[in-house]
Amino acid sequence: MWTWFHRLASPPTFYRFAERLAPWLLIAGLALIGVGVWQGLFVAPADYQQGDAFRIIYVHVPAAALSLSIYTAMAVAGAIALIWRMKLAEVAVVSAAPIGASFTALALVTGMLWGKPTWGAYWVWDARLTSELVLLFLYLGVIGLNQAYSDPRTAARACAWLALVGVVNVPIVHYSVQWWNSLHQGSTILSAEAIANPKMAPSMLKPLLMSMAGSYLFFGAVWLRRMQNGVLVRERRAKWVRAFAGQALLAEGSNARPGMAGPGLVEAATPRQGRQDDADRGRGA
């Protein structure tokens, strides 16, 4: 287990591993999301209380669950990056932040759209909503901090510290509906009580679980892809990247064996892409 872990932490091994895994995660994730959302919108019955308005749950709940999971994952990767100084974990931290911010924003927007018809208000300052908004700002802080440093390693490690300190907000978001009397309803699927005694009819629950699982797989695929790009940019001077890039260009030029390297590799490994990333960081080419 440990040797496997260590080998995976080496950038070229990770790159090849991710190259193989990401497409499958993406296909499986999109398929599950597709079926889950389709069943949720058209097959599942309307709710006895909320009617059709409850169907936004099939987007809102996966997004909200991911917003918390991604931040937790970022903090774990951050701890690994800081304790063992592992380059791959640093890349993992900064790669996850924009995805997490997107899911958090999605959870907030869908929550507001759900709140208006059911509660009667788009926004209330209750503990769940406020702490989720704080979570969005924490993500934005990580993204901004990453761009403030010109050295990517320093930037990533600063982000790791911020992720670690900010992670105290995650249990607050999750337990806010239990700790405080809140307008937001309690947990339908993610609490001990709910697991023992399901709070959702099976015909409604199944699509929800599918779209949730799909969202996690989709996140996995996007995260791996972003990490691959991050690794390539950081290691652009390393022999293995040059060898890869050479191979890829060769394959592209002769058009003989396009299968030698995936299209993602060609895209990301050409110098153009590397410079673009530098420009993103505000350093200029």
Binding site: V134, F137, G141, G144, L145, S150, G166
Partner: peptide, 19 residues
Amino acid sequence: LTVGAPRAGLMLPILVLPL
């Protein structure tokens, strides 16, 4: 967090406010 970054001046409020 921001002392080593030359263009972090505006970052500080964004980092600090959620915390």
